[in-house]
Amino acid sequence: MSLDAHLVVSRAAFTLDVALRAEPGEVVALLGPNGAGKTTALRALAGLEPLSGGHVRLSGRDLTRVPPEKRGVGVVFQDYLLFSHLSALDNVAFGPRRRGRTRAEARGIAAAWLDRVGLAAFAERKPRKLSGGQQQRVALARALAVEPELLLLDEPLAALDARTRLDTRAELHEHLAKHTGATLLITHDPLDALMLADRLVIVEDGRIVQEGDAAEVTARPRTDYIARLVGLNLYRGRGDGRTVAVGDLVLHVADEVSGESYAAFPPSAVTLHPARPDGSARNAWPARVAGVQRHGDNLRVRLDGPVELAADVTPAAAAHLRLSPGQEVWAAVKAAQVRAYRY
């Protein structure tokens, strides 16, 4: 029940070209900004979008030219697409019924699935009489009731409010852990990806820019998008020993590198000063405040200068510096806080 796919979809202004693999029982998150081609990839795997090239293989079976109704791929759509004229039970029974079960058998399977997602008491309700979280669970039960070899989830939590999201995410995690087939989860929310997936595949502009488990991706981001997602300042430059030259700025770093390298540090590692600091920080440069925003209990300061920079400061420090847009300050980062790795 492993997935092996190479998806190529060419459109006038956009090309998707990604290779995806998922082992049985593995949850892979396809993470990327809006318009990266995530949903196109999902539709191509489900057979709803024709491929311009590449292949889709599931458990060794070639599905490239197989129509969606014969693929054995379950899909949880972003807005669920529950059939509004059918009860929750009949929605879940729809798949088993189409796959040759009798009406009674299909309803039995559906009842068992609704029980598993904790909705046994709501079986006869129409979708519009269910809350968002309940609809999401019906959609999940409907997709799983056909025992798909591959389960696809398109932003399964995006339509929920923050509170419901937390509970639903935990439940979803449980159900995905029990699913024996491969699972591909599409999301633009890094938290969903980190909590639900075993492996992250990050897509930008129709291409994979980075793959790996959560620890790898968060420690060593490879694009600005990922760095922003995980909240790091990320620069590309030329490494030489324990320095990385980013334009005119030479950063002292904690790791030994040479050649094209990344340097990364969190906004909390940055300190701001009214004048050149004389402390232990090896990296210091003049910068100009571009904007100040609330960020949790602190303030996040955006700065221009030799490099664009985000710094987190306490409200007290901000008051002391009288931070306001356009103001000139000095930014400092200790070399020990700057990670460097090869490009």
Partner: peptide
């Protein structure tokens, strides 16, 4: 919304 028809197709409906 034709996506309901797509949803039906993924569930095995011709």
């Amino acid at each position: 919304d034709t996506r309901y028809e797509e949803a039906a197709a993924t569930l095995g409906a011709g």
